[in-house]
């Protein structure tokens, strides 16, 4: 599943509304709880594991995509 679709599913929003700038500061449903749920959903979907500090530092979809790229996943 493409990353934007996964994010839209977790945030219950239309995929068209999800961009690389969608993030904790810009999406009203992306709270601390949704953040953890989203990170674990991404881990499960792409078979990767994030450290606590990586999870803490991710602020938006663009950063999440870049982190996945660093781990060898194109999402």
């Amino acid at each position: 599943m493409p990353l934007n679709d996964l994010v839209s599913q977790e945030l219950r929003d239309k995929p068209a509304n999800i961009t690389d700038e969608t993030g904790r500061q810009t999406h009203r449903r992306w709270d601390s709880f949704a953040h953890v749920q989203l990170m674990v959903a991404v881990e499960d979907q792409y078979s990767v594991k994030f450290s606590n500090s990586e999870i803490e530092q991710i602020q938006n979809v663009g950063q999440l995509r870049a982190l996945l790229r660093d781990k060898g996943v194109v999402a």
Partner: peptide, 9 residues
Amino acid sequence: NPLALRATR
């Protein structure tokens, strides 16, 4: 985060 992550994983 560590508590919620551990429980969710």
